[in-house]
Computed example of a mutant assay.
Amino acid sequence: MKQQNDINTIAKKVLLLEAEAVRGVADALDQTPDFAQCVAAILSLRGRVVVTGIGKSAHIAGKIVATLNSTGTPALFMHAADAIHGDLGMIQPEDFVIAISKSGDTPEIKVLVPLLKRKGVPLAALVSNADSYLGIQADYILHAPVTREACPHNLAPTTSTTAALALGDALAVCLLESREFSSADFAHLHPGGTLGKKLYLKVGDLSRQNQMPQVQEDAPLKDIILEISGKRLGATAVLSNGDGALLGIITDGDLRRMLTNFTRLEDVRARDILTPSPVTIDVDDFAAEALARMQARNITQLIVTEGGRFSGFIHLHDLLREGLV
């Protein structure tokens, strides 16, 4: 059994080897125009990107497909072995194929490539060996050169799969930026889970579920306490007697501090103890932005406005309930 220090040394060695491999892939981009040409070809597609591979490369292909789909490039996965047993039918004339193989000479790939050429679809080879069978036959080479696997026996795909995955991510991001794919577009494709909520959940979606504690500027202390206690948000907005404009906020903390500043509590009015210019947020802002403002100021609620007018409150508990914290 290896000692802890030995384990850490091995882990660091693997990580550094893989980091160096990714750096080598970045350097290789300068040696060929194929990557940029491949991006341009995919951008002009009327069909889909079909990504294929065998073994560990098939797993990398699946992840690249998922990334492409989530960033606005329609894609599907085709296992190279299944392709030669019927799945080749999923490829349509307007599609674009990316085949992933470290060596570029695996038997399944050698069988598959002539079938793809017969279909007349563009073929990109994501390979380590650009001079391989796949590299020579491909229309575009996405070069991911790797000299050695992180595996001590230089056998298990480790460094090579990391390099291929990184190059696939680079391809997806280049396509995303070329399409000017926005966070709003991203939200449409990710409606579920915490990520989706951060991208589409608005402040108004949550604040409208809450009560709207509010008092006039001349409200006495009893009314202020009843409003804060009764509506259970730990604060109340203070509005102008005249036009209802937002003047400030009174929190539980303001009430406690008031006890040290006033001796005749029956004379206290809302205007005397409010905090002016409170932190606010618009109903149309994202709930994630509300969280960021609360965290930045170490507070637990924000006044919500609509068109500059008081519209309610959003509380940290609302964000906790939605899983945004």
Rank of each mutant, 00 (worst) to 15 (best):
L176G: 12
L176W: 11
E177T: 01
R179H: 15
S183I: 14
A184F: 03
D185V: 15
D185C: 15
L189Q: 11
G192N: 12
G192R: 10
K197P: 14
K198D: 13
V203G: 10
N210M: 02
Q211N: 15
Q214W: 12
E217N: 06
D218E: 05
A219M: 06
A219N: 08
L221G: 03
L221K: 03
K222G: 01
K222Y: 14
D223F: 09
L226H: 02
L226Q: 13
L226T: 03
G230L: 01
L233I: 00
A237V: 13
L239C: 08
G242P: 03
G244R: 09
A245W: 06
G248T: 13
G248N: 00
I250Y: 00
T251M: 05
D254E: 07
D254I: 12
D254V: 06
R257Y: 02
T260W: 05
N261V: 06
F262D: 00
E266S: 09
D267C: 02
V268M: 04
R269Y: 07
R269N: 01
A270K: 09
D272M: 13
I273R: 01
L274E: 01
T275K: 03
V279Y: 08
T280F: 01
V283T: 15
F286D: 07
F286N: 05
A290P: 05
L291T: 11
L291M: 11
A292L: 09
R293A: 15
A296Q: 04
R297K: 00
N298T: 05
I299T: 09
I303R: 11
V304C: 03
T305L: 09
G307F: 05
S311H: 00
G312T: 05
G312A: 09
G312Y: 01
F313M: 06
H315Y: 10
L316W: 07
